[in-house]
Amino acid sequence: MNNDTNMITIKGVQKWFGSHHALQDIDLDVKTSEVVVILGPSGSGKSTLCRTINRLETIDDGTIEIDGQPLPDESASLARLRSEVGMVFQQFNLFAHMTVLENVMLGPVQVQGKKSAEARERAMELLARVGVGSQADKRPAQLSGGQQQRVAIARALAMNPKVMLFDEPTSALDPEMIKEVLDVIVELTKAGMTMVVVTHEMGFAQTAADRIIFMADGRIVEENTPDAFFSNCKSDRAREFLSKVL
């Protein structure tokens, strides 16, 4: 139990890939139920930062805490923490050899010890919620990209996570499928989920984010509300970026 309302606390984080300083002096707090969107040019470190939160990338200095607990380094405690942090990948990463339903059931049954019947019921509920209920017995390869990503979101939600991480969830999708996935993510924001979203979708950032984090060259360059950021950003770097994407 913690007293402050910060779900994620990142302090003084540094990361190097060899000699490349990928993350520099990162300080970031994410409150419970807050939706933080990370924007920036490629190579800015935004995906790397997102992946350090569940330790898919390690950090070389600084601390990360989730719900008051420091991020463990390994084994059972790390696995337990990861089961409470849902992640949605750019490449979906659905388990190719399992059906859609089995994909969504695997976590609850094998990680959380839920009974098969209970997990199945919840999985069908979630699949219906994201709009792919009829695809439950198909293999991922038989689904479109947009459907696969929605299954991936259902799979992450099945674990009842405290936090959801989205690493460029729509970047690998055909344009006509982006909306169906963003709609699901927006619905999640309205349901009060704490979220960190790395994206290039400016429309989504403007309407759904509580806070925008702009990164460049491994640093957090600017932090603001969406309205303030998009209409009147403070830094030159951000202005340059916006002029190219808007």
Binding site: L56, M87, F95, L106
Partner: peptide, 21 residues
């Protein structure tokens, strides 16, 4: 593909279960 193992680990599956499932 690395993503298969990453997705398993991100879910909290540990080494033996990731191998098995």
């Amino acid at each position: 593909p690395r993503g298969q193992t990453e997705a398993a680990h991100a879910m909290g599956l540990r080494t033996v279960k990731t191998l098995r499932f």
